[in-house]
């Protein structure tokens, strides 16, 4: 087996996602310190990176590395849960629109167009602020504002599938809609759904980080990468590492899902 052929976008992405998942699951074992308690003597001032604290300590004397490791948990949870909400809404709307056509399609697609005309972050901020930030509010809200592209792709695929001979044939034999969708449409639309799921996860991770940065994320003391950057902005001259490392963590997580999704997308189109 040629090693160079093994290194593709999707394998690198998959490896990076695996590392992320392992870090999130085994956070208590991997983190050198408790992320929520004061461990450094430098209370009041951020501490520079040292051997004991490789990413430094924040202004409250907490270990940044441990906070980043635990932050992976909340980011992955919100990212994946929000992706699931996004996919559920998007697939339901796309399937109905593409399969039933006519008035159903018209109404659902105009609603999709309407949602596309609203800045997702602004809408998410307004909804989270009104509903008060909590883990559940955040992933539901992210799902509510980001399903539009899924609905469009699933609709197009469903439309193409419904015209194929095997579906038309099954319909002619009297198969009910439910059976047509479950047995014939969904299995054939599934590959693109999986690709979209990976790509959407990177978007939901970014949206979650942005909400955290704006103070609308999961409430403290749970460590969250976005909020760590927000808290670090006032120290950008004196302690630049405080904002640097959590951002790298977000970048890593988002990039890993983008590599995975884009790699599959490219393989599909070849």
């Amino acid at each position: 087996m040629n090693i160079r052929r093994l290194v593709t976008l999707e394998t690198v992405g998959a490896a990076m996602v695996t590392v992320l998942v392992i870090v999130a699951i085994f956070a208590p074992m991997l983190a050198p310190h408790d992320p929520t308690i004061v461990v450094a003597p430098t209370f009041g001032d951020p501490g520079a990176p040292t051997l004991a604290f490789p990413m430094g300590t924040d202004e409250l004397g907490r270990d940044v590395l441990s906070r980043i490791i635990f932050g992976a948990r909340i980011s992955l949870t919100v990212g994946v849960a929000a992706m699931a909400v996004t996919m559920t809404i998007g697939i339901a709307i796309g399937l109905c629109s593409g399969f039933f056509g006519g008035a159903v399609d018209f109404i659902l697609m105009r609603f999709t167009d309407l949602m596309l005309s609203l800045p997702p972050l602004l809408l998410a901020m307004a909804l989270v602020a009104v509903l008060r930030p909590s883990l559940r509010t955040i992933f539901i809200v992210i799902g509510l504002v980001s399903w539009t592209s899924i609905a469009r792709v699933v609709r197009a695929e469903t439309l193409a599938m419904s015209r194929r001979d095997f579906v038309v044939g099954a319909a002619a034999l009297g198969a009910p809609s439910r059976r047509l969708i479950a047995r014939h449409i969904i299995p054939n639309v599934l590959p693109i759904i999986v690709v979209m799921a990976a790509l959407r996860t990177s978007d939901t991770l970014l949206l979650d980080a942005a909400l955290s940065f704006l103070g609308l994320g999961v409430p403290p003391p749970t460590p969250s990468w976005g909020r760590m950057i927000e808290e670090a902005t006032i120290y950008f001259r004196t302690a630049p590492w405080l904002a640097t490392f959590p951002g790298l963590a977000i970048f890593y997580a988002v990039l890993s899902f983008n590599l995975l999704g884009y790699g599959f997308l490219r393989r599909r189109s070849q």
Binding site: A210, F236, P246, F251, V254, L255, N258
Partner: peptide
């Protein structure tokens, strides 16, 4: 160029801004 563009779309906007601030301030 493909990897660069995927990296660019993966950078959180607010972090990029903060990093530019840090670099330029220094």
């Amino acid at each position: 160029l493909l990897v660069i563009s995927l990296a660019l779309v993966s950078i959180p906007v607010f972090w990029l801004g903060t990093m530019l601030l840090i670099a330029v301030a220094a």
